[in-house]
Design a protein around this nucleic acid. Structure first.
Length: 361
DNA sequence: GCCGTTTTCGGCCCGACTGTTTTCAGTCG
């Protein structure tokens, strides 16, 4: 008898295990393994339950899932729960997980707040910040206290992830605005927006411009900006009135391809690409591809060059999830993605739920 | 915890920004 478990539910368990281990201060690489496995499972086309049902050994073919996580997947599908997950939740209050959703709060701060002040929920944290108990902790100051209150406010106001189509209605005018700034050469979308995910968590924008262009001043002064979270020479983050977070990174033309590749992600894809580069004696960052020993610039002006430098064909952004696309690019087996010219028509059906003549059944 | 086109042990991507520091740790993407 197997429990009905969707991949997304199993992924959530692994996400929580990773977060709890991280708060405990466990080996960061072990934490990463669980996070990585969670991402892989989220993107997996097949249902894990069906895989376990048919042939459990198929799990061994999934890269990033080793012996331990394999066993836990089987355990979850068979029993509906995971022992390690349960043990961690006994050890640490589950409310700590919600604290991680606050921007600027990570595992180390959660641990400190819990240990020193017994804080185990957002409402505990809000009370402590309002009564000025936080700045007494080492490494925390008055600004941290203010930032925490703002982060709580922003989280309460945020609407979570936005559907791509809705996000685009906010992104398009922002892109136009940035294009019209003096000295700007090119403005590109990046991140999950460029990967055309169904929903996006924040807006990533890349700007190439001449030296000294007032890009960050203008960006943070965009009328739709509600709050500026960070503002530097090359990178700034704001929250828009609609609740979406927007990041802008400014780079010189020479770095355009490398930056676009870096900023488009996904994170898992980038880690895999960099790992591959490293094994080839190369180093990739947002400024380009470099020879690791001589630091000589190898590629970076366009994305094709970046992929070519690591022996791969250009990979369409929609596929960059570290879900086998790198192997496919290596063996010249990348699929042709559907584009607008492939659409020949549209089929849809009405039922009596609207203005049709028949029932759904 | 995962992985291996020099490896089954010893590594594990890289850099910006902030706030707290007095040179750095934490967070984020």
């Amino acid at each position: 008898m197997l429990f009905h478990m969707e991949n997304i539910e199993i992924a959530k368990i692994f996400h929580e295990i990773a977060d709890l281990l991280e708060i405990k201060g466990e080996n960061p690489f072990r934490v990463r393994s669980y996070k990585n496995a969670a991402h892989i499972i989220e993107e997996l086309p097949e249902n894990l339950k069906s895989i376990v049902e048919k042939d459990e050994s198929q799990l061994e073919n999934i890269k990033g899932i080793g012996k331990s996580i394999h066993e836990k997947i089987v355990e979850i599908v068979k029993t509906g729960k995971c022992k390690l997950h349960g043990e961690l939740l006994k050890e640490l209050p589950p409310g700590l997980l919600e604290l991680l959703a606050l921007s600027g709060i990570g595992p180390k701060k959660v641990q400190l707040l819990y240990k020193e002040l017994g804080i185990q929920s957002i409402s505990d944290l809000e009370k402590a910040a309002k009564t000025h108990k936080i700045h007494m902790l080492s490494g925390m100051g008055e600004k941290t206290e203010e930032k925490i209150l703002k982060a709580i406010e922003n989280l309460k106001a945020s609407k979570g992830r936005f559907k791509l189509s809705l996000a685009m209605t906010y992104v398009t005018p922002l892109l136009e605005y940035l294009k019209n700034i003096d000295g700007v050469i090119k403005v590109s979308e990046a991140g999950s927006l460029r990967r055309r995910k169904e929903t996006i968590g924040d807006i990533d924008i890349l700007v190439t411009c001449k030296k000294g262009a007032p890009i960050m001043d203008k960006f943070t002064a965009y009328p739709e900006v509600k709050e500026v979270l960070a503002k530097g020479d090359t990178k700034s983050t704001v929250i828009l009135r609609c609740g979406l977070q927007a990041d802008v990174r400014a780079l010189e033309k020479k770095s355009y391809g490398a930056a676009l590749q870096y900023f488009t992600g996904s994170k898992a894809h980038n880690i895999a690409i960099r790992d591959r580069a490293k094994k080839m004696g190369l180093k990739i960052n947002e400024y380009g591809v470099f020879d690791e020993t001589t630091d000589k610039w190898v590629a970076g002006e366009d994305e094709e060059g970046v992929y070519k430098a690591v022996g791969l064909k250009w990979i369409p952004p929609e596929l960059r999830e570290n879900a086998g696309e790198i192997e496919a690019a290596l063996h010249n087996k990348l699929p042709d993605l559907i584009d607008i010219t492939d659409i020949k028509g549209d089929l849809h059906i009405h039922t009596r739920e609207s203005d049709g003549a028949n029932t759904i059944g």
